[in-house]
């Protein structure tokens, strides 16, 4: 899957999310989840790291999933100390769980696994605003630089005995830290703009090579993907 064009992978990820979100049958969603795992395997996602990412996302929906069986009325499923869970609620929770995980896993495999410049050029190839692409590229470029800046500020605080606690001093210090990081990042923006001007930047970025034509591998991937989507659509609604 490494050779597949960025545009194709982004479109595939969107299509995957649309179809998966529209599906409501648990058996189909389970099949979709399997195909997402398959995609992850094709993309050679690191196993432990990917599972960690999925679990941290599941943390976000934990409350929703845990409460749904009890708040949805329907056929009795199980109950304890006055609370009763319904079968319908359990199904709804399961549906959300599978959809969210399948969508995220497919996104990680199809989009996030690409090198970042490839994501950007894929978005550009799909007609995304040029300025937005430049913003995205510059942001990715400077995250590490700004993170080091943050580390230095943080170390300077620790060197003077700062320990996060539950008090106003802690929160004020964090506010200052955030404010200082924003000030430094704005200063850096000025210097980067100056560097651009020094190299002849006059307000527009030079356009570099047009997008490559889709290769045979791209078409093969697309056809397989469309077939899979068609299969799911027929299964759910046919």
């Amino acid at each position: 899957m490494k050779g597949v064009d960025g545009r194709v992978r982004i479109i595939a990820a969107v299509l995957f999310a649309v179809v998966t979100t529209a599906c409501s049958r648990l058996d189909i969603l389970t099949a979709i989840m399997f195909s997402a795992v398959l995609l992850a395997w094709f993309a050679r996602l690191p196993v432990v790291e990917t599972i960690k990412k999925l679990l941290s996302m599941d943390g976000f929906i934990l409350i929703l999933i845990a409460t749904l069986p009890f708040t949805t009325t329907g056929t009795h499923w199980f109950g304890f100390s006055g609370f009763t869970a319904s079968v319908e609620g359990g199904q709804l929770a399961m549906e959300i769980f599978l959809t969210a995980n399948a969508c995220m896993l497919s996104f990680l495999a199809l989009v996030a696994a690409m090198p970042h410049p490839a994501i950007a050029s894929g978005l550009r190839g799909l007609g995304c605003s040029k300025n937005l692409i430049q913003i995205l590229l510059l942001t990715i470029r400077y995250i590490e630089t700004l993170r080091l800046e943050y580390q230095r500020l943080r170390t300077a605080m620790q060197a003077r005995g700062f320990q996060p606690r539950n008090n106003l001093h802690t929160w004020r210090s964090y506010g200052y830290l955030a404010g200082m990081l924003i000030v430094r990042s704005l200063d850096r923006a000025d210097r980067v703009l100056a560097a651009m001007k020094c190299r002849g930047f006059r307000g527009s970025f030079p356009t570099v090579a047009e997008d490559a034509k889709l290769t045979k591998a791209d078409y093969v991937f697309l056809w397989w993907f469309f077939l899979a989507v068609l299969f799911v659509v027929v299964w759910q609604w046919g």
Binding site: P117, L138, M196, R199, F201
Partner: peptide
């Protein structure tokens, strides 16, 4: 770091 704002080295050097 102020001067190298492109994703890759070659893109940076040919910007000018």
């Amino acid at each position: 770091d102020d001067q190298l704002f492109s994703p890759t080295v070659i893109e940076d050097v040919r910007f000018g």
